[in-house]
Every structure is written in structure tokens, then in C-alpha cells.
Design a protein around this nucleic acid. Structure first.
Lengths: 212, 212, 212, 212
DNA sequence: CTATAAACGAGACGGTACGTCGGGTCTTCTG
DNA sequence: CAGAAGACCCGACGTACCGTCTCGTTTATAG
């Protein structure tokens, strides 16, 4: 996840010694700002999650925010997805079924978080403006998992086929859970949640049932 | 789709006679405003789709817009999703396979429209503010198709199971195509598009392949 | 006062018979509209004296107002000054002193009316846009009185001198009372009011008092 | 003239040190805004003197204006009358006659300025809404001059009488010149202008002339 | 007794100004 | 030089009013 590295001031001078001139940035500021952004997103939604509001809740000045992130979108993006790749969600899956179930659970949890739901509008906005972001996010977020699944699926067929199926599966998992969380009330989604992995694994209209 | 009926002035008085007082609203204004909104969304994106820009392109005054929709969000929502249920996308499907392929094509086309992609951020924002919208949209948009699929799937099992599977399938179709369109560049999505219906129909990890 | 005659539709066809076709205008509408305008001016001031507010209070439609007056300014103008020249305020004055005292009392009363005070801003606006109005108003409002005073003042000197003095006197009376009413609280203006005519009649610095 | 002190944010905290936090307001902005307002009033009149027009001509953002004045009326008020008491207009008068002539000239010039004439409607509006403004303006604008005249008039009589006469005289000068400038075309006002001070000084109907 | 013509109440329409608010940048002072 | 405070520009939002227009209805005269 290097979304935030597009923005920062072009510091990083040639000399390491030069880097330490002046007052160092307070590392606590970044954390409290991200936390404040998450809280506000969950509490008041995207529109009212103002830069000023974030700065006030974090006890921080607005310029300090813009010194770290080039826009509100970048800040929120990191606040919501910045912890990705800390723990690979399906690191210990050994077969496709396990992988699919784990991935579903993970994304279902992810999109159940109120701050994630609230952040989506702004993030989609950013996608519309910057075409490179989506693919970056996709490869960072889904890349490793897709590769793992592709390897597990690669039973005889070529690599290309397995990769294609793995990508489509990830697409369905992410999209399906996202839409589920956005459109359906929390309470009556339980039976659906249980059934989703099965459909992905075995299809909604298995061939063998057609014969009987 | 009755989103727009939430907003308008509480007309629909008890008496039909009361309704005809005063100059009637010009029905052409609503249409041209919606068309202008769609065009602007596709051309300049969400942010620059201003109420003033819409009113200018539609040859209409700003108050005329606010008489019909209480906010920009409501207008755009209807502009993008207001034509739903005009033509059921899968009316002529006779078996699940046909249904799935037709639905995939339909939603893939839908989310390929630039105005739909541009409108999504604002619409998700609206969802956050008005919890009733999502479920309304869901039932209007997917309801009929889901019911049809459920009927086709109902081979022996109870209605509840078929309904559940149909809902999950729709979830995957809508979500998967949406994420595909939002995250992936148009050009290299072709092989994926071809494979998606197959996965939904037969699963990524068919049981019979496991045995061999 | 023919301010309102600028507006009416250019009816007045050649034939008197043609004039009476169609439904005649309801004469009560004009009166109730003027009364409503006066009340609103006195109660809520110029800004909130809306055409809609006038029409509602008068129980009348907005087009009925615009059929009679071409603008809000014209309506308010007539509402406030339309009754002028009904009764010449100084008709029975026999000498300059009497004339000055009567005129002062009259204008003091006039500018004490809340609707007159409230109407002044809009009227001044109209003056700025239409240069002919002020002189019209001046000649209608002050003309007869000025002529009368000029005649009384014409003791030996030429007509021009007397006319000049009469005009200046009227100017002082109107302007002085207007400013008094606009700028000073009602309560502590009593002593001033008593003294004003004397100054106009005999001056602030009479010559004979200087000698003693 | 402290009209503008009503509006600003309730700064002036207890501590002077608190006042210097944050970026200080650019003092040039206020001046250029006032100048722009004066120019626009003179050129295009009250109605077209828009806040946006002022901000554009001053090269300033609209919020910067609203930071300084709470409304267009306040801004224009200060633009037109903000320079009062910079130079007492009759500082060097030694007798009533001189004082009256100087005051007449001063106010005649004042109300001849196009920006002053254009601003009057809005200002009268402001008076209607804020009752304290008129008396403030009156005391600031006329106070010193009135006091000076009262002292010159105080020949034997009590202070109260002289003060009363001085006030009435000021009322006549201000009101008379204002009405003159508002109602009469510039060109044929010359003879009146010459005669006005004489009437104020000696009256229209001097007693000694009656005898002869 | 019907036809015509105009006025009527209601309210939509285009245009435009208002005052507010958010994003992102810049400028001061303090630590 | 980082940081907090806050002023700055830009521009969109939603509201209100003005003066015009279009409805369908009512009321008068004309034939």
C-alpha cells in the first residue's frame, strides 16, 4: 500500500544527514489524525468528515495534515486501508475452499466497519480522477491472495486459466460482500452470508444436479 | 424506483381537484434536466456536475430543479437509476444459465456507462444519509430478476433455499461487475468477463475435478 | 400624482365601446392591495414587504398586482403617497408664519408614519433608476404649497426671488422633518419640533439680536 | 463611527497576547474592498453593487468580505460614511454665519457624490433594522459641529436654547441639502443653493420687513 | 342562451443576489 | 524549521425575491 507515498513533499534528499535538519515531525500527529478520521467517518459520514473537523479532533493544525497527505482523499484512504497487508488474510489456507471461506469472512468484516462504508464515496471519487489508483489498490489488496488461489487452482490447466479464475473469484468476493454490506440491512443478511462461499465454490446451477 | 417521490412537495392531496391549481409543471423540464445531468456526469465527472451547469445545459432555471429534487444527490440519483424497471433485463431467460449470462451482460453494460460510474460516489453518499434508499434500490433493481431466478432454481428444495441462492447470485453479479468496472482498465478485462458467468454457474472448484 | 399611469396596459382604444369587453377589473383589489402594502411596510419593513406577502394579505393573486402596477416600487409608491393632494395641507394659511407652521406639522406627521419611513429606501432606489420621478414627485407634492408661499412672500421683490425663497423653505421643511424622523428617537424630539418653524421664519442668528 | 465594530467576530479577548494567534488579516483587503464598493456605487448603482462584484474588483474572495462585515449593508455603510470625523468640516468657523455657510457647502458636496446618493437606499434600510445606528450616525456626524454652533449662538440665553437651535439648524442643513440633491436636477439648483444659507440665518419672513 | 373576452387565484418559470461552507494554500508567531 | 492558528481564494450549495408566463375558473358584455 503505497498510496500515500505519491503525495509527501519531495523531501528525501540525497544526503541522509541533510534529512535531520530542523525540527523532526511529531510521529504522534499522523496516528491521531488517522484515528480521528476513522472516528469521524464512522460517526458523521463522509461529507461531515471535514479536514477542519479532523484537525480539531486530533488536536492538530490543518497544515500539519496537508504536510503529510496531499488531500483529504489521501488521508482518508490511508486511515481506512492503511493497515492492509499487516496480516495477510488467507496466509494459512491450504485448499481453494478454505481460501474462499477465509476471504469471504475477511471482506465481510472489512465492509461491515462503518468507517469503511463511509469512506467509499470519497474513494470512488478519487478513482474517477486518478486512473492509476484503482489498479494499484487492486494489486496491493488482492494481488497476493489471487496469486495464492491461482496456484491452488492450477490443476493441470495452464497458468493463464487459473489466474483468470482466481481474479474473477476475488472480484466476486470483494464486490459481492461490498454490495451486501452497502445495500442490505445487517440483520437479515445472515443466511446469505452462509451461502455465498458455497455458490462461489460449486456454482449456483451445478451440472450434476441437472442430470438427475 | 420511487426515490423521487420522497422529495417532491407533498402533493397528492386528498382531492384530485386540488391538484390542478396553478400552472402545472412543465414535464419537459424534468426530462431535459435528467438528460443534462447524465451528459455532464459522463463528460466532466461528479464534481463538475454542478446544479448551475445542469440548469444551463438543460436551458432551465436553478429553482426549477430544486422544485423537483431537494438536492443535487436526488437529481443525480434519478438521472442515473430513474429508468430502472423500464425493461426487465432478463425477461426471456428460460434456464439459470441463460439468466446468469444475460444478467452479467446487463450489469456489465450498466457499469460501463460513464455516467453511472461518475454518479456512484454521490449515490453512496446518499446511502449513508438515508438508510431506506439502499434497500429500496435493491428490491426495485434486483427484485424481479431474483424472483425469476429463484423460481428456476427451485428444483425440489424449499423456496427459502432457492431464494437465498438467487439473492446471493445477484449480489455477486452486481458487485463483481461493479468492482470490475471500477477497478480494472477496460481493455484487459475481456477474458475475465467471459469467465465470470461460468464461475457463478459451476463454481471455481467443481467437485468432480477434485476427484480426478 | 400620476406615477401609476406609466404602467397600465396601453388599453384606451379608440372606441369606448370596445373598452368594456371582458370582465372588468375588480376595484376592490387595488384598494386592499394598497392597504396590505401599507400594513406590511409598517409591520415588517421594506425588505419583507414582498409582492407575494402583499398578495396573500390582500387575498389577491400576484398577476392582479402586476396588472395594476408595473413593479413593486410603483405599488409601494402609490400605497404611501397615493393619497397626496386629496387635501391641500396649507389651504387656509393666510400669512407666511401660518404656512410654515402648518407645513411643518404636516410633514412631521407624514414622516412619523411607520409605513412612510419603511417605504423610503425603496423609493430612493426608484429615484436613482428613474430620474423623472423625483421632479414629478416634487412638483406634485410641493408645487401648490410653494406657489402659495411664494405669493405671500412677494412683498415688492420680483417673482423670481420669492419663488426661490419658497422653494428653499419647502426644501428645509421636507428635508429637516424627514431627517428628524429618521435619525432621532421619537421621545426627545419635542423641543426641537417646537423650535423648527421659528428658525425657518426668523433665522438662527437674527440681525437685531446681534446689536443688543 | 464605530458601526464596523458591531460586526467583527467578537475578538478583543481579555489577553492581548491571544490576539496575535494565526495569520493576521491583510489590512489592504479592507481598504480595497471599501474603495471598490464606492466605485461600484458611483458607476452602477446600489442594485448592481453586488458582493461578488465588489470582491472581483477588489481582487478579493467573497469570504474575506464576510469576515469583515456581516452583510452587504454593513460594508457599504462603512464605505460611504467610514471616513467621517477625519476632518471636521467647520473647524475654523468663527461666527454663526460662517458656520452655516461652511456646513451647507460641505453637505451639498457630500450629497452630490454619486456613491453617497447610490448608497442612501441601503442605508435607510439598515436604519429600519437597527435602531441604534441612526443616533450613532447623527452624534458622530453632526455632534461636534452642533456643539460648536451652540457655543457661538449662546448669547445670553441658556445653554439648552442654544443647543436646541443648533440641532435644528443642523437638521435643516442636512435634510435640506439631501432632499435638494435627491430631488432636483443638478443644473437648475444653483440659485437655490445660494439662497439657502441666508434663509437659515435670517429667516424667510424677517420681522423688520413686515413693518415696512 | 350561448360565445367571447378579459380578469382572476394559484403557482411554475428564468434569472440573479445572498450568505454559508468546504478544500487546499499561504502567512504569521511560538517552541 | 515544525507546529498551531487562522486568513486567503475559489467556487458550489441551497434559499429568496422579482417580474413573467401559463393554467383552469369566473364574470361580465355581445350577439
Amino acid at each position: 500500500m503505497d498510496f500515500e507515498e505519491v503525495a509527501p513533499d519531495n523531501l528525501t534528499p540525497d544526503e541522509d544527514t541533510e534529512r535531520l535538519r530542523g525540527r523532526p515531525r511529531d510521529p504522534a500527529i499522523g496516528d491521531s489524525a488517522l484515528a480521528a478520521a476513522r472516528e469521524l467517518l464512522a460517526e458523521v459520514g463522509w461529507d461531515k468528515t471535514t479536514m477542519v473537523a479532523i484537525s480539531e479532533r486530533a488536536g492538530v493544525g490543518k497544515p500539519a495534515l496537508y504536510r503529510r497527505w496531499p488531500s483529504k482523499t489521501h488521508l482518508v484512504f490511508e486511515a481506512v486501508f492503511g493497515w492492509v497487508d499487516e496480516s495477510p488474510p488467507v496466509a494459512d489456507a491450504t485448499d481453494p475452499e478454505e481460501w474462499v471461506r477465509a476471504s469471504c469472512n475477511y471482506t465481510l468484516e472489512l465492509f461491515a466497519k462503518p468507517e469503511v462504508k463511509a469512506a467509499l464515496p470519497g474513494l470512488l471519487s478519487a478513482f474517477a480522477e486518478r486512473g492509476d489508483l484503482p489498479s494499484t489498490l487492486w494489486s496491493e489488496f488482492g494481488g497476493p491472495g489471487i496469486a495464492m488461489l491461482a496456484q491452488m487452482l492450477n490443476r493441470g490447466g495452464g497458468d493463464a486459466d487459473a489466474m483468470r479464475d482466481a481474479q474473477a473469484t476475488m472480484l466476486f468476493i470483494v464486490g459481492g460482500t461490498m454490495v451486501l454490506r452497502m445495500l442490505m440491512p445487517e440483520n437479515d443478511s445472515a443466511p446469505l452470508v452462509e451461502r455465498m462461499p458455497d455458490i462461489l465454490l460449486h456454482g449456483v446451477a451445478p451440472k450434476e444436479q441437472k442430470d438427475t
